[in-house]
């Protein structure tokens, strides 16, 4: 099991650091899966984290100038690590102006992701900063828990409004209630609603547009095709989960959308050239 990668380009380094910071805002612990082509940050829905799951996919070629890995075996050419994204994020933040950053899987007192940064100097002597971020290696028998989630058979898919606007609204609603109902239809309309003994608040977004999913996306071409465009699909979710998702946005996505499975799950997707982030929030009754 070997892994080493090198980032030289400062823009790539910044971008990578922002992605990791975003992940760190979403979850304390997650799984980092390394394959020859991709890096994945994965959180599988467990009761402990409120049933939320996450899937973030990065293409290694877009970040790393050098990337070598050798998985546990040639058939299963993968490495699965449990990491604390915040620790990696901190290590990367301190080396933002480095000439080059190497990331290596090492065995010190425990398995570590070692971040080695070569910092610029005025003299001829190099300054090298090393961070050892402890990780846990996940045995192969548990890998099945960290597979890419299936695209849910959603009732409505809609583009999200500017995330900043949505964040402002959700932040205020969080002050007023613990749960929020998000509803949307195929007419480009989305509402955020809360209701308590003291107050009811509804924010109406319109003209958002509905993403055109090909035939491969909605498997049975059933409900969403014949659906009345004005009928809302809704999900009642824990506001904190949605707030977390909106808070962590360090990367301005080129596309942000959400899929709603009526009263079952809220599936949020952010797309950014070389990064995609999916976030699943289960609906509560």
């Amino acid at each position: 099991m070997k892994f080493r990668g090198k980032i030289v380009d400062v823009a790539c380094l910044n971008h990578f650091s922002r992605v990791v910071t975003t992940i760190s805002k979403l979850t304390k612990m997650c799984v980092l899966r390394l394959t020859p082509d991709n890096l994945f940050f994965v959180l599988s829905g467990k009761v402990g984290n409120g049933g939320v799951s996450m899937w973030c996919e990065l293409s290694q070629a877009n970040f790393f100038d050098e990337y070598q890995m050798e998985g546990v075996s040639s058939e299963d050419n993968e490495i699965c690590l449990e990491v604390t994204p915040e620790n990696i994020s901190r290590a990367l933040k301190t080396v933002q102006n480095a000439k080059a950053v190497k990331v290596k899987l090492t065995k010190k007192h425990c398995p570590c992701l070692t971040v080695i940064a070569e910092l610029p100097t005025l003299s001829s002597i190099n300054r090298v900063v090393t961070h050892d971020v402890p990780v846990d290696v996940i045995p192969q028998r548990l890998w099945h828990e960290f597979k890419e989630p299936d695209m849910p058979d959603f009732d409505v898919s809609i583009y999200l409004p500017p995330l900043k606007t949505m964040k402002n609204v959700v932040d205020r609603m969080k002050n007023l209630s613990n749960f929020l109902v998000i509803e949307a239809n195929l007419n480009g309309e989305m509402n955020l609603k809360i209701e308590t003994d003291l107050v009811s608040v509804t924010t109406h977004f319109k003209d958002l547009g509905n993403p055109p999913w090909g035939d491969d996306a909605s498997q049975d071409a059933g409900p969403s095709q014949s659906r009345d465009p004005d009928t809302m699909a809704e999900a009642r979710v824990d506001i904190r989960r949605l707030q977390q998702f909106l808070m962590g946005q360090q990367v301005t996505p080129s596309r942000a959308m959400c899929n709603i499975v009526h009263q079952r799950v809220l599936h949020l997707i952010l797309l950014h050239e070389d990064v995609s982030l999916q976030y699943f929030i289960p609906a509560v009754a």
Binding site: T165, V201, T202, H204
Partner: peptide, 10 residues
């Protein structure tokens, strides 16, 4: 910005 919020405060 074209987004409308309706609040009913008891």
């Amino acid at each position: 910005g074209g987004v409308v919020t309706v609040c009913k405060i008891n």
